[in-house]
Amino acid sequence: MNCSATDCLLQMYDEQHDLEDYQSGVPRWCTGCGDNAILAAVQRLCRDEGLRPEKTVFVSGIGCSSRFPHYMKTYGFHGIHGRALPVAEGVKMARPDLTVFVNTGDGDCCSIGAAHWIHAIRYNMNLTVFLHDNQIYGLTKKQASPTSPIGTKSNTTPRGSYLDALNPLSVTLGVANASFVAQAVDWIPESLFEIVKAAYHHKGFSFVRILQRCPEWLPKSLDPWMQDPNSVQLLHHENALQISAGLSRVYKNQLRHDPLDMNRAREIASSHDVIPVGILYQNRDIPRYEETRQTGVLRTTATVRKGFEAELDKYSV
């Protein structure tokens, strides 16, 4: 009989893993593409946390970034454009014993899949979600995305994009049940790793927006931020991330921020002059949909038979 108690299965083999245990194939991203840095951080996380490759699933949509699962030697689901989140929710609902990650692009998540994004926040299922935000449609060769800054020249906006960019952090913080919202940048590997790790450890919908370089289509767009360490503001708190001495030497713009403070988190999310990096908001008390929906009934042939017969009794004549 089906029972999701696979957690109880004996672990009969060594849980020590090397980086190679998570590496699959040679990434086909452009040289200098920020996705490479995200992949490195995530593979390190898997190794450090000793994640069992067969119990780990990476779910993605369509886009350059959504190729991610192919480069992981875990289970993967490279689905359709915009629908990574509902697929991942189905996986998690059916199998809470699996560790589920989601890789989604700014077009995938914030445009075609925007409805799912809003609702995924509300469901607050235990998923770790990486928004690979390169502010452009990469795979389809340079069209404006909802997160492209106004004025971005692209193939569909040759005279510059017309609309103000959507702010994924503010949107996420505006939805009921937001439980973990963080921002990282691909060019500070140490903080990227720490944030990815904190997201993984959060039980709930951990949303990490990662500013990701796309040297192919927007070669210099993030340069001003990269070249001026003070334009990056590292968030720290005794209940959240601490900043290492090494990082502190370069990144002097730091802000002590309590991730429980939603109002402050919203202010920080909407900063224009600096890129906040760290955990903006975290609330561990928000219920997770997959747990809320647990029926408490252990499915056995006997329970199904009993429930079924009871229903038939109602319709018997």
Partner: peptide, 28 residues
Amino acid sequence: EKVGGIVHQAEDEIAACAFAIGASYASK
């Protein structure tokens, strides 16, 4: 739920179908 089953009302039919596919993929 009396037999351990769940009805998930998704945000739209696309999500409902994708959710079902995710769950089927993962075993059921």
